[in-house]
């Protein structure tokens, strides 16, 4: 385990460096303008997590609207459209799968990326079955999430 770690860390550092440069480049070139900033719906009942992700996203040209529950998320959807949604699978009130099914009915064109806390293959498969774009296991690097978001967006965005 020790040896694996020491291999993983440098590799991640390298990868992160590249990604950061790309993002910076995008901003400088004005590819992502204020009007064209990506609108993200972020749903997770872990407030600390939602806040920090939103802050970091904002620095990377993504406007994240925070929702602490499925109900919050549905409320937010009434006012505006989103380019992409990130939904935690396990939440107290309405669980991620349920929200995913509703989202897929309301806005089928919006890609949804699932976040899972306990890595249950079954739940992940279920999410995919209901039309999730992909899933990520918590805890994950922000860059991984950014990568998934970029993959999820239609080409040209």
């Amino acid at each position: 385990m020790e040896s694996k770690q020491s291999q993983t860390v440098p590799w991640k550092q390298v990868q992160k460096g590249i990604l950061k440069k790309q993002v910076t480049a995008m901003t400088e070139e004005g590819n992502i303008q204020a009007s064209t900033r990506i609108k993200l719906l972020l749903v997770d009942d872990e407030e600390g997590f939602v806040n920090v992700i939103a802050n970091r996203m904002s620095k990377r040209g993504i406007d994240a609207t925070k929702a602490l529950s499925g109900t919050d998320a549905l409320k937010a959807l009434r006012g505006q459209d989103f380019d992409v949604a990130v939904v935690d699978l396990k939440m107290q009130e309405m669980d991620g799968i349920e929200l995913l099914r509703i989202l897929k009915k309301m806005v089928p064109e919006m890609p949804v990326i699932m976040l899972t806390g306990h890595g249950s293959e079954r739940a992940e498969e279920e999410g995919m079955e209901y039309g999730a774009f992909d899933y990520l296991t918590k805890p994950c690097e922000l860059d991984e999430l950014m990568q998934k978001i970029r993959e999820a967006l239609p080409r040209g965005r």
Partner: peptide, 10 residues
Amino acid sequence: NNPLAVILQK
């Protein structure tokens, strides 16, 4: 995993 995710993001 949830607190770990928060720590990592922080």
